[in-house]
Structures are given as structure tokens and as C-alpha cells.
């Protein structure tokens, strides 16, 4: 774009020539060998810039500005709805979240295996999440202990709304290996 403008204005106004052509510019008006090459290189640069811009736009085309995806924040009832020491499965199918309550509070675990994104199953007798795809296993806290999963399950932001309900926000996630589980939003004290 800018290269093209320079090119246009330069043809109208002989005073604004590309630097390489300036040396001979005053006396000679017709195209010399040297100025021809500098025009050529400007032309090529403009061509490359335009092509590059076009392909960047084409790449950008694949990333729309608005996504029509389900809402990522939901109200998950009152803290009293959850039993201490249990993994709650009621939001698994709809939102992909396990809500776990322990003695101190509540946290929301993502149901996406950190290996390749399958959905693990909660095995109540063995007290672990077990992924059927490649056999990764996680403790109730979300910490990985077997199989190929490279890191623990992620936790989602969980806060208490003004009306006393629990709100889970899936747009914000906390990763244990980055030390983010200590964040007050990653764990709701009750």
C-alpha cells in the first residue's frame, strides 16, 4: 500500500526519487540503467508486500471475530448442593465440568484430558479419573499420576455471586504446574 503510494507520487514528482536514483537525478530525465534497476526493485518490493498482505488476510480469514459457541459461564446452584468429599457429575454433560467439594471449599475441574482431549471417567471405587483413550489417570484433586498425560487437569474460575450461588467461568483456567491453583479464584473457600 505505502510502497504503491510512493511509486505513484514519485512518477509525478521528479524531486522525490528513490535514494539509489538520486545521484544522477538532476541532469538526466530519461530512465538510465541504474534507475531502471532501482525502479525494478521497488516494483518487486511492492509486489512482495502486496502478496504477503493478501496471504496474511487470507490466513486471518480463518479466525472469525464472533464465535457461535455455548455460553462459557454458568450458575451452578448453591454451595450446600454439593456433598463434602464427592465428585459432582451433574454439569459434566452440559458444560464439561466436575465440581468437587472437600472440607475447605469447592473447585471446578475441566473434563478434558490434558493428553489429547478425551473425556475421562470418574471411577468411584478406585477414587480416580481414568481416561479411556490412552489410559491417563488423575487423582480427585486433578493431579496426574499414571499414563501419558503430561500435566494435571485444569481448574476453572469459581466464585460466589451476590445471591449466594456458585458461578463457574470457563474462560479463565488455572494450571497447577504454573502454580496457579493458589489463586483465590481457582478455589472457593466455603
Amino acid at each position: 500500500m505505502t510502497d504503491l503510494e510512493i511509486k505513484k507520487s514519485a512518477t509525478k514528482d521528479p524531486g522525490r526519487r528513490p535514494p539509489a536514483a538520486l545521484g544522477k537525478a538532476d541532469s538526466v530525465d530519461q530512465i538510465t540503467r541504474r534507475s531502471f534497476f532501482s525502479w525494478l526493485s521497488i516494483g518487486w518490493l511492492a509486489f512482495i508486500a502486496a502478496t504477503g498482505g493478501f496471504f496474511t488476510m487470507m490466513l486471518r480469514f480463518f479466525f472469525p471475530n464472533v464465535l457461535f459457541e455455548p455460553v462459557q459461564t454458568f450458575r451452578a446452584g448453591f454451595p450446600e448442593d454439593y456433598t463434602i468429599g464427592e465428585v459432582d457429575l451433574r454439569w459434566k454433560d452440559k458444560y464439561g465440568v466436575w465440581i468437587v467439594r472437600n472440607e475447605e471449599g469447592i473447585y471446578a475441574l475441566s473434563t478434558t484430558c490434558t493428553h489429547l482431549g478425551c473425556t475421562p471417567n470418574w471411577l468411584i471405587s478406585e477414587q480416580k479419573f481414568k481416561c479411556p483413550c490412552h489410559g491417563s489417570g488423575f487423582f480427585k484433586t486433578g493431579i496426574n499420576f499414571e499414563g501419558p498425560a503430561p500435566r494435571p487437569l485444569e481448574r476453572y474460575k469459581i466464585i460466589l455471586a451476590d445471591d449466594g450461588q456458585v458461578i463457574v467461568d470457563k474462560t479463565k483456567k488455572f494450571q497447577q504446574e504454573k502454580g496457579q491453583w493458589g489463586d483465590p479464584e481457582a478455589f472457593m473457600k466455603v
Binding site: L59, F62, F63, P64, L67, F68, E69
Partner: peptide, 17 residues
């Protein structure tokens, strides 16, 4: 999650339409 290679492939953050 909304701007990586996987997004370009499946057009969203989750498997869908």
C-alpha cells in the same frame, strides 16, 4: 485457544458445527 493452529483447523474452540 482462540487463535492457534487447532483453531484454524476446526474453526472453534470446541469440536462442533
Amino acid at each position: 485457544m482462540g487463535s492457534d493452529a487447532r483453531f484454524a483447523l476446526i474453526g472453534g474452540r470446541f469440536m462442533g458445527e
